[in-house]
C-alpha cells in the first residue's frame, strides 16, 4: 500500500487509478449508547473498486449510510474532492455525484422500470414547473434527451425487455439490476453498492460482477462495495477495508487483507484453516 503514489497509478490489468477522491477521517457514529462505528479512517481513490467487508453487524452498512449522508457521524470528517463536506441532507449528497443501491431493494414499486431509472436522472433534469405543466418544447425535449441516456443504461445492463414492466412484477435478480441502473442513470462519480449480490445464484452473481467491472472500466466510476461473497470481493476489488464490531481491523489489497492475522482471526477465521 505504501508504494502507491498519491497522484495515482495503473493497475496490473491496465486500469487507471487516480488520487484520493473521498477521505473519511476518524469517523465515529453512535446510536444512543451503541457505537456502530469507532474512529474509522480510510480513503477511496478515483476509479478504484473499494470493498468494505466484515461479519454481520460490523458497521458496514452504517459506513455506507455515512458516506451517502443518511447518517451524520458524531465525530470525524469527510473530505470529498479535497474539501471538507459540510453537514448536508442526503438529497444534496446525491447532487454531489454519489449514488447508491440498497441492501434491501429500494425501488419504487408502483412505477415502471423505465420510470424508476428516469428518477435516477432527477438531478440532471432542469425543466421548471411551468414548462413541465405545459409540456411544450423544452420539457418534452428534455424528457426525450434524458430518455436517450437512460436507454443507453438499459442497453448496458441488458434489461430492454422489461423496460415498461411495473417493478413489482420483476423477480429479485432483475430488481437488483434495475436498482443498479437507477444509480447509474445519475452518472455518479462514486457508486455505493450495498450487497449487490446478496441472495443471487452463481449465474446472477457472475452477471452482476461483470456489470460492476464494466461500469468501472467504461465510465471510470469509483465503486464502493459491500459484499459477503469473499470470492467475489477478492476478485473484483483493488483494496479492501475490513471491519469488525465497528472497528477497522484491516485495510489493503486483497492479498494483504487475506494474510492479515487480525482479519483471519476475526472474520475469515477457521474457514480458511
Amino acid at each position: 500500500m505504501l508504494d502507491q503514489p498519491a497522484e495515482g497509478y495503473v493497475t496490473a490489468d491496465g486500469r487507471q487509478i487516480g488520487p484520493v477522491v473521498l477521505e473519511l477521517k476518524n469517523i465515529t457514529l453512535r446510536f444512543g449508547g451503541v457505537e456502530a462505528i469507532k474512529n474509522i479512517s480510510f480513503d477511496i481513490r478515483e476509479g478504484e473498486i473499494r470493498a468494505i467487508i466484515g461479519p454481520n453487524g460490523a458497521g458496514k452498512s452504517s459506513m455506507m449510510n455515512v458516506i451517502s449522508g443518511f447518517y451524520v457521524p458524531q465525530e470525524g470528517e469527510i473530505l470529498y474532492k479535497g474539501y471538507k463536506r459540510r453537514k448536508m441532507p442526503p438529497y444534496q449528497v446525491a447532487r454531489t455525484g454519489i449514488a447508491r443501491t440498497f441492501q434491501n431493494i429500494a425501488l419504487f414499486e408502483g412505477m415502471s422500470v423505465l420510470d424508476n431509472i428516469m428518477t435516477g436522472r432527477m438531478n440532471l433534469m432542469k425543466s421548471g414547473f411551468l414548462k413541465q405543466a405545459l409540456w411544450w418544447g423544452p420539457a418534452s425535449r428534455e424528457e426525450d434527451e434524458h430518455r436517450e441516456k437512460v436507454e443507453k443504461v438499459i442497453d448496458f445492463l441488458e434489461i430492454q425487455h422489461i423496460r415498461k414492466t411495473p417493478v413489482a412484477r420483476l423477480p429479485y435478480g432483475l430488481k437488483k439490476r434495475v436498482e443498479l441502473a437507477r444509480a447509474l442513470a445519475a452518472e455518479p462519480q462514486i457508486l455505493l453498492l450495498d450487497e449487490p449480490m446478496a441472495g443471487m445464484n452463481v449465474e446472477e452473481k457472475e452477471d452482476m460482477s461483470r456489470f460492476i467491472l464494466d461500469v468501472n472500466d467504461e465510465f471510470g466510476t469509483t465503486i464502493v462495495l459491500i459484499e459477503h461473497d469473499m470470492g467475489v470481493v477478492m476478485d473484483l476489488s483493488d483494496r479492501v477495508v475490513v471491519m469488525d464490531y465497528g472497528k477497522k481491523i484491516g485495510d489493503g489489497t486483497p492479498d494483504e487483507v487475506r494474510n492479515n492475522q487480525d482479519v483471519i482471526d476475526a472474520y475469515l477465521g477457521v474457514a480458511h484453516e
Binding site: S68, F70, P89, P90, Y91, A94, R95, A99, R100, F102, A106, L107, F108, E109, G110, M111, D115, M118, T119, G120, M122, N123, M125, S127, F129, Q132, W135, A139, E143, R182, A186
Partner: peptide, 23 residues
Amino acid sequence: GQMGRTWMAIRDMDIAAEIIGVN
C-alpha cells in the same frame, strides 16, 4: 414527467427517494 416521478418516488419509498436526490 420529472415532477410526477418525484411525487411517485416519495409515495413508493420516501427514504430511497431522498437518497436519490429528491428534496
